[in-house]
Design a binder for these strands. Structure first.
Lengths: 210, 210, 210, 210
DNA sequence: AATGAATGAGGCTTCATTCAT
DNA sequence: GATGAATGAAGCCTCATTCAT
């Protein structure tokens, strides 16, 4: 926890971080199996063997990289949770704007992508990501929906039961951006704005029985 | 296109199909890079060299496998398109039920998973999938929304502009099933039913300006 | 057990044997750790990967090589055992002559050397060698001594209790040849002849109490 | 040669000795190639780089270590040589007892083991060991035999010509202890006592012509 | 056409050695 | 002197691909 004191330790931390940064790039570009540690080392500006001073093997590098990339997200979550008293519409706007600026436009997008693409073969990654990010994120959205419900902004408990419905379109935007935007552009801002309209439209009317 | 005539040709086609089936299993389990052609050959019941009689290399096998797995989906799409006159609510119910039964519970789920996880490094796959499946599927949903709009079931053009909003939750269900269901179960039927309620609730009211 | 029938199988057996032969040379020259499988492959006239068609890894190659080299020795042992009725002096002469011609002057010397030098870090090798060669060999020598005792050629049970005493000088000759003969020649034939004299001299006199 | 004077020099000598001690342990356990200088440094309580302050490389460390371990043996040899007037039987008893107590039960056993196992690939080691230990040791034994011959205790020159015959069984005991004692115990004291009986039995009788 | 033994390029990992602190 | 982080050469092993049968 404490910041390292000596120059040696600082340099060591910087090296470790450089390796993690390079690893994110390389793993995101090639996937775990196809990624070459030579590339990671070169991009990090260290020798191949240096990686092994910090990480037992390729797998541990991968897992540590994901965990390290996740950590800062958690701090942000706390801030978002503090906004739970905001009106629903404004809250959704804040959330989606944040998602576009702080996830889709940053390396965090690559982290999520790696969790998606490699999570199945790294259950530890999937489990960690679920515990540290997904369940917390859904919990926050759920509380937002719950508060809106209590305030009378929503006359329906669907969003509270399935906060996934709020997050599904942003996730789709991320996936589209990764796979299809080359072939067909997607206006993410408009998509999310329309999603917000959808949610607000559905918020108040009495739900029809299906 | 024509059905093979001679027994020899039939046997060849069966071999080819066995290889494609095995490849789907193996690629889905391990990903493209980590998958071993030894495993594909063994699972298909052929010798390793036989694979190269049908496919130039590992990459072509992968791409052909995805294309072959996509094809049958297209026929289904035609059928769905024919139901475009159905009332919106019923149509959504049909769509989601179909998705659960015919995608999530079958090997088609694995195909989509592979497109998600490998599409980035196989632009040809992503492009093909987008052209043959995604754009067609979104087109169908878009027409459904359009028809409903014309019939007065929807007083809002959001779904027509972004049919993605209809498909996002089913996609999320697929992803959740692949990554997180081990750690937290998701009631997909309930999720999709709630999604349908959301869509119907939002269908008629005048959209609020955002 | 059955001889391989097809040409393919024969060629395979020859390859396997070529690898084992090369492995003996390389391991004997460099020791297990320093030996390079590249060298084994080159000397065997096969590609590096071919080794792994027959042996799981370097360690298994080493162990199989020792076992394969030991096997023929056992057949010889049976022949020696059959000579147990021979007069002691003649028997010793036969034994030592055999050892010089069939061990010291052949690759079997290298096998014993490898058991000596690597046996400690390959307990499986040491155990196998002890079970298949050492205990059997000592058993034969012991019976030889026992028979000579019964026939009155020896008036003393020392050699029966410690057949090691008969084998110790041949072993020393082997070690000397491996380590010191460059610096000081050892006349092995004379050594073993003198050893035989020693044994025969000691055979009949009443042992003095020590 | 001169004892170091300053504290710094003393500390340096202690470090050097600690490294040599650790090296003996590690080399004996793993062999030259498989031994890791990391382990030597850790066991010696110094940093890895410190080893290179005293020794040019791994090979020199190994050779110096063997030489250093050999030196004390030489002093003992002088003492043994002084006993050459002792009656043969008593002399052998002293020798063998010394070997059991001062070689087999100490780290000197490991040194001999290393000379055996690595001497072939370190001719310098083998040559040094031969010159400093083997030839001197055999010389002592030879003089013992010679003196006994002159005193009439032996009526035969075999042991004088091949003092190896006296040392072979102790060497075999050492080898047996390193390789096979786990699988079959060897009573070394009894073996050597029996060996002594054998030698004494053979000492006086007129040798038969072979 | 089908086989599967053989190949060898390429990646992960280790560890002797160096050198800035 | 002493350290130990950093280096990078080298070796084991895998596996896509080839080709003689």
């Amino acid at each position: 926890m404490a910041a390292p004191k000596t120059k040696r330790q600082q340099a060591s931390q910087q090296r470790r971080q450089a390796i993690l940064d390079a690893a994110l790039d390389v793993f995101a570009a090639d996937g775990f199996s196809a990624a070459r540690l030579d590339d990671v080392a070169e991009k990090a500006g260290v020798a191949k063997g240096t990686i092994y001073l910090f990480f037992k093997d390729k797998e541990e590098l991968f897992e540590q990289m994901v965990v390290a990339a996740i950590s800062p997200v958690l701090a942000r979550f706390e801030a978002l949770a503090a906004l739970e008293t905001m009106p629903l519409d404004q809250m959704l706007d804040t959330l989606f704007t944040y998602f576009q600026a702080e996830v889709l436009a940053t390396r965090r997008r690559d982290v999520i992508w790696l969790v998606l693409t490699e999570g199945r073969r790294f259950p530890h990654i999937a489990e960690t990501y679920h515990r540290m990010v997904v369940s917390k994120g859904l919990g926050i959205i759920r509380r937002i929906a719950h508060n809106a419900y209590k305030r009378g902004e929503i006359s329906w408990d669907g969003l509270e039961r399935f906060p996934h419905l709020i997050f599904a379109p942003p996730l789709m935007a991320l996936i589209w951006g990764g796979l299809f935007s080359t072939y067909q552009e997607l206006d993410v801002a408009d998509l999310l704005k329309t999603h917000r309209q959808l949610l607000m439209n559905a918020a108040l009317p009495k739900p029809q029985e299906v």
